[in-house]
Design a protein around this nucleic acid. Structure first.
Length: 807
RNA sequence: GCCCAGGUGGUGGAAUGGUAUACACGAAGGACUUAAAAUCCUUUGAGCUUUUGUUCAUGCGGGUUCGACUCCCGCCCUGGGCACCA
């Protein structure tokens, strides 16, 4: 008997599938002529990877395989499936490699994407390769630039000088999102603060919509929670505090205006602008200034470390007035108050705020309780006895404050001082100011440079190319200069799900983001899967950009303003022992090796079987052996039916039918729930069942097994389908429907419990009623000792399942 | 500190109110073999028991229920996210 040889089988079928464009999604125009059956569209998407030089990671494979299973099943169910793949190819590692080796980044990118594509094909992933996109292709980034222009035209892109997070190693400005615990997300170097002119995008303007519209989409709750948390909306009041003998006022933001009577001092952030205005009135200004300078030099990390030991300094000879009770309040400067949140000043209520309490104790400030344990106000003048929740409005009104909303979300820093990114399509004219590059001149292509490394001054390497930098102002034709900063990695991934709709390897130049026919047909994405680490970055950014495009009419209104109908997340794969895989630890598993040793199908089955899809899970080099064994078992089973005269039996055995129908239901349901591990387990049970009753199974049974197997191990299914002499391709067969009648067994095992403990089991015909079961149950020899001489209080009956005698 | 997800055999895990430990890995014993690998068969939560059985066990402590891994309350621990956010 021939042996299962995945290496040979897999190459053969991959060639058939990809050469035959089997997974090509049909655009509406192409369909109208020939396909009158009107298939339902299904757009399923996984995040496109950054094509690094290390090649495909074993962890990448898990989401791709999972979604491939869903895509393959939906195709078999007759849907017009769009399952595309592309490359998010701008980025630092490629640039760093280019700097080191002196090779142009586009050549490195080409090499890497070729490798990724090959690796993906080795897994039999059913991507529509005719729609492959690459963010570094000028035809692609023309539209990334176009979106920027639209943002600028609509007042959502602006330039501002601000203290940015600066990585001294990468020589690059970082968004808040790219700073992890005070360090650069990429290289781990301690981040510094540096003032720089930067482009910013007003994502904060969309903060409320980004929260509220989550109610309209089907995202895993943990994803919604994390986004809401990140945006950090909090409602409160803004209240003005006058300063004695001054016209200046200190505005504070508080979520607890009900505690205003308990406010015993104010605290300003060290860089609060009012300090400059009132410094003449501050007796100890020299000391205060010294404190301010110290605070400025503290890094974010140092501030975090000093959380418990709060420092501050009182402004001597100056007092504020509590607008509620007219008490005179001391004013402090302390670095536990942030300048960029709220108003940069707080009213301290030490009785009801932990941080204020710590500070008050250290600097001997009064502590006044204003809320009792029944959440009623006290020590609050006319408001005593009022519910604190009502007091929020009442006290805000009393002092002439107004309702206010604050967010943790910041505007999005959009400038990078690097070569390998999309040039920002802006021109600065001394006479006219910032101008957009005219649309017909897009894309602004990256010019060729000699050196790719960023400059020590922090300017982009593009700034050195005078010929490119100096241009005519599009408005007045006077001398002007191009923007030399490039866009962050996130720019190209903002809209890539739209790029797949029109992308076509041959006709890429005709690519048009505003194709309403394609948008109307394909959007929104029906199912989007990606990593949890992108929840607050890419996922939020791309939702924002889609809403913006919708607002300006680039997206047909009827589609709605959410790009993704459903969002799921996969868990990462850890190394054996539960630690992260990393090159430095030498514990990285290479998918190429696994494919070589066990086959692509075995890798697919193992990665899906290893545990719940959304859960983090360690790799187990022994686990893959089980997957391989399972496939060999199927191979050997199916070969028995190669004998040409093996005829299908007309009346297959009922038990096998029952098992098969149960499996059809279980596999189908589980795929939709991404419970791939239990789907495979049920396939194993089916195969084990076939092995136990070889005389009862038919060729038809085995063919059904192959159809169910095909999304998981498509190569093997295809090969055996052919070997059984079946027509067509297995992956193009109709998905199986189960027969409800055949799922229900004729005989059921009935549990007999006494006081909730199982004391006996009986096999009876299905559908017996309570009195019939009671009769059988009480006669049972095993039961009698338990109920003998006892009073039966109650009998619980669950049809076809159990009877519980309570004594 | 706040938000989220978890805690089940030697291991990955299954079971969402009704037979706890499916499925797989590993281990032990056996068959085949000159031998090994592969394959196949048997056993495999712990205890008591010759068997029949029976008791205990899903992080800990309570509760609801005829019945709880599952629901509720209070803890402990692990992982992820956020964090002087007023």
């Amino acid at each position: 008997m021939a042996k299962y040889n995945p290496q040979k089988i897999e190459k053969k079928w991959q060639k058939k599938w990809y050469d035959g464009s089997l997974f090509k999604a049909q655009n509406p125009s192409a369909r109208s002529g020939q396909d009158s059956s009107k298939k339902e569209k299904f757009y399923i998407l996984d995040e496109f990877p950054y094509p690094s030089g290390d090649g495909l990671h074993i962890g990448h494979c898990r989401p791709y395989i999972g979604l491939d299973i869903i895509a393959r099943k939906r195709r078999m169910q007759g849907q017009n499936v769009l399952f595309p793949m592309g490359w998010d190819a701008f980025g630092l590692p490629t640039e760093n490699y280019a700097i080191k080796k002196g090779v142009h980044p586009s050549i490195v990118t080409k090499k890497n994407t070729d490798n990724f594509r090959k690796q993906m094909k080795n897994l039999g992933l059913s991507f529509d390769w005719s729609r492959e996109v690459n963010t570094t292709d000028p035809k692609y980034y023309k539209w990334t630039q176009w979106i920027f222009i639209k943002l600028f035209e609509n007042g959502l892109a602006y330039k501002d000088k601000l203290a940015i997070n600066w990585c001294p190693s990468c020589k690059i400005g970082l968004a808040n999102e790219e700073v992890v615990a005070g360090n650069c997300e990429r290289c781990g170097t301690k981040v510094e603060k540096r003032e720089k002119e930067q482009w910013l995008i007003k994502i904060t303007k969309y903060a409320d919509r980004l929260i509220n519209d989550l109610a309209t989409v089907d995202y895993q709750q943990r994803i919604k929670d994390q986004q809401i948390n990140w945006i950090g909306r909090s409602e409160g009041s803004e209240i003005d505090f006058s300063i004695v003998n001054s016209n200046e006022k200190i505005k504070v933001f508080t979520t607890r205006p009900d505690t205003l009577f308990g406010c015993t001092f104010l605290v300003l952030a060290p860089d609060h602008e009012i300090l400059k205005k009132i410094k003449n009135k501050i007796k100890n200004w020299q000391e205060v200034e010294k404190y301010i300078n110290q605070a400025k030099n503290k890094s974010d990390l140092e501030r975090q470390e000093n959380q418990k030991d709060k420092t501050g300094i009182e402004l001597e000879s100056i007092k504020a007035i509590n607008p509620a009770n007219k008490e005179r309040l001391p004013i402090f400067v302390a670095d536990y108050v942030m300048v960029n949140y709220g108003t940069g000043a707080i009213m301290a209520v030490p009785a009801h705020d932990q941080r204020d309490l710590e500070f008050a104790k250290k600097y001997n400030q009064k502590i006044i309780e204003v809320i009792d344990n029944k959440k009623m106000l006290l020590n609050s003048g006319e408001f005593n006895g009022m519910e604190s929740e009502k007091g929020k409005i009442a006290i805000t009104e009393l002092v002439g404050g107004k309702k206010s909303v604050n967010y943790k979300l910041r505007d999005w820093v959009f400038s990078r001082q690097h070569y390998w990114g999309e040039p920002i399509p802006m021109i600065n004219c001394t006479a006219c100011g910032w101008q957009t590059v005219p649309e017909k001149e897009l894309p602004v292509e990256l010019p060729k440079v000699q050196k790719y490394q960023p400059t020590d001054t922090g300017e982009s390497p593009l700034s050195a190319i005078e010929k490119w930098v100096n241009v005519k102002c599009p408005t007045c034709k006077g001398p002007a200069k191009r923007e030399t900063d490039t866009m962050p990695n996130w720019a190209g991934s903002n809209w890539y799900y739209l790029a797949y709709l029109a992308a076509d390897k041959q006709g890429n130049s005709k690519f048009e983001i505003r194709n309403s026919k394609l948008l109307s047909y394909w959007m929104p994405v029906d199912w989007y899967n990606g990593g949890m680490e992108h929840t607050t970055l890419h996922l939020l950014y791309s939702r924002f950009i889609f809403k913006f495009l919708w607002d300006i009419g680039a997206i047909p209104k009827k589609i709605g303003n959410e790009p993704y109908k459903k969002r799921t997340s996969h868990g990462i794969i850890l190394a054996e022992g539960g630690v992260k895989m990393s090159k430095s630890k030498g514990n990285v598993i290479n998918p190429d090796d696994v494919v070589k040793n066990y086959g692509g199908d075995a890798l697919r089955v193992y990665e899906m079987f290893m545990g719940p899809f959304e859960q983090m899970i360690p790799w187990d080099s022994k686990g893959i052996v089980g997957a391989r064994r399972f496939l060999e078992k199927i191979y050997n089973l199916a070969l028995k039916f190669q004998i040409p005269n093996s005829k299908s039996q007309i009346n297959p055995k009922l038990e096998i039918q029952n098992l098969l129908n149960k499996t059809i239901k279980k596999v189908g349901d589980d795929i939709e729930l991404m419970k791939f591990n239990t789907a495979i387990s049920s396939l194993m049970i089916l195969v084990n069942g076939f092995y136990e009753k070889p005389q009862d199974i038919t060729k038809e049974n085995v063919k059904n097994l192959l159809i169910l197997l095909s999304p998981f191990a498509p190569h093997l299914a295809e090969e055996l389908w052919e070997k059984l002499g079946s027509k067509g391709l297995c992956s193009q067969q109709k998905w199986l429907k189960y027969n409800e009648r055949l799922i229900n067994q004729e005989k059921v095992v009935f549990m007999i419990q006494v006081n909730g403990k199982v004391r006996d089991k009986i096999e009876v015909n299905a559908g017996l009623d309570q009195s019939q079961i009671e009769g059988i149950a009480q006669k049972g020899l095993r039961i009698t000792p338990w109920i003998n001489g006892k009073q039966i209080k109650k009998i619980i009956f669950v049809p076809n399942k159990l009877i519980n005698i309570v004594i």
